[in-house]
Design a protein around this nucleic acid. Structure first.
Lengths: 218, 218
DNA sequence: GTTGCTAATCACCGTCGGGTGACAGGGCTG
DNA sequence: CAGCCCTGTCACCCGACGGTGATTAGCAAC
């Protein structure tokens, strides 16, 4: 039988060539998915045309053809970021009544912390942002920033920050702290002497974060 | 004359071959200096044997011989970090009397912020730390962490944190915030919607930081 | 001067990266 | 069926990288 013959001739190669369907749309999706997975798992160090093509199991030429190269692919990734943040961070207030601005920020901070912890791709992008300053990264950073601020805006509702404090600056510091905490933990399991491995460790970090929020916003 | 002849023959090359002295110690220092400068200016993306050798103006073989490769060179860089932090961050209290733990942390936070802002190499190392998790980076991170904690210890003196608060966690968050703020600013001139370019911008960030410190430590 | 040590360089290898042009093959139209 | 367009693949170029062996050249002791 032909099948047996083929199996006997090349037993080490992929036994099923998977009969690649000629479907541009599907291939495009596969490539984009591969790019995101690769970025999430390997980081931006080894991120490139060849790596994505290998991962996607297709020829790199297709990336050039369908996305116009790596830049276009990254741009497409950025375009996904908005919908993607919407998917991963809950919109509701978890049944809580957010009476004060402090309540709101505390909840948002913890939500953001958790979301970032659970999200390798987002972490990589954040790490990328602070490591390089190329056009690619700027695009990605802008997309992420926009998605984040839109989310914050949506969650804020009608609550206004207390007078007399620079809420933009304070919140930027809080976000910075959360991002660096998560990045540092993901990279080395600790940050500035604070071990961040077990859920208990994160419990402590969350408590401290809440304390800080309450300290400034009451 | 021989010199004129050489100049006539190769006018485009370095006109003065610089008469490289045969001095191993000096060469080692040159290499180390080049490595640090390169890392500070270009970042870890393009950091490698060839780049360092080019920058140092010597053959890469010497890096292998004297430092046992890039790893050894990085290790040597890490060894310098301690003395180097000592050099760049003032030890005195600037004539202030630090009466409370809050006074202390506020001052340390601002000192650290300023020192990191002024220090490209340290910034690159921090960025490297959160971007990769290789043995090299771990070594470097450890050296930096040790230097930082020693400095904190020295500055702390006899002041103790208030009871009832997890000072380690709080301070880790503060350090994380400062690091990410500076990194983000260096990369893109802003952080989470907060523009960080002019001294006035940084003024606002410092004010917010002080407010946070005072909020938790009084 | 001759010899020996070693600092410094040169030349080369294999590998991998980005990028491009040519080619094979399926599926649809006439 | 013949033609064509489009998807997918292959083969190649160039350059940069990490790494290594052989080679040159200066200094010092004899």
């Amino acid at each position: 039988m032909l099948i047996d013959e083929a199996a006997a001739v090349a037993p080490l190669a992929a036994p099923v060539p998977e009969k690649r369907v000629r479907d541009r749309g599907a291939t495009e999706k596969t490539i984009l998915k591969a790019a995101k997975a690769l970025l999430a798992e390997e980081g931006f160090q080894n991120f490139g045309i060849n790596a994505v093509a290998r991962r996607a199991g297709c020829d790199k030429q297709l990336i050039y053809r369908y996305y116009g190269g790596l830049n276009g692919l990254i741009e497409a990734t950025g375009a996904d970021l908005g919908t993607w943040v919407r998917d991963r961070i809950p919109e509701d207030t978890g049944g809580m009544f957010l009476l004060t601005y402090g309540d709101l920020i505390e909840r948002l901070a913890l939500l953001f912390l958790e979301a970032l912890r659970d999200d390798p791709l987002m972490r990589r992008i954040v790490a990328w942002e602070v490591s390089e300053n190329t056009e690619q990264v700027r695009r990605l950073a802008e997309a992420r920033s926009k998605a984040l601020s839109q989310w914050l805006e949506r969650m804020r509702g009608s609550l206004a920050p207390p007078k007399g404090v620079d809420a933009v600056a304070i919140n930027a510091i809080l976000i910075a702290a959360i991002q660096h905490l998560v990045l540092s933990a993901a990279a080395g399991g600790q940050c500035a002497g604070l071990v961040l491995k077990t859920p208990k460790d994160w419990e402590k970090a969350a408590t401290a974060l809440k304390r800080i929020v309450r300290g400034v916003y009451g």
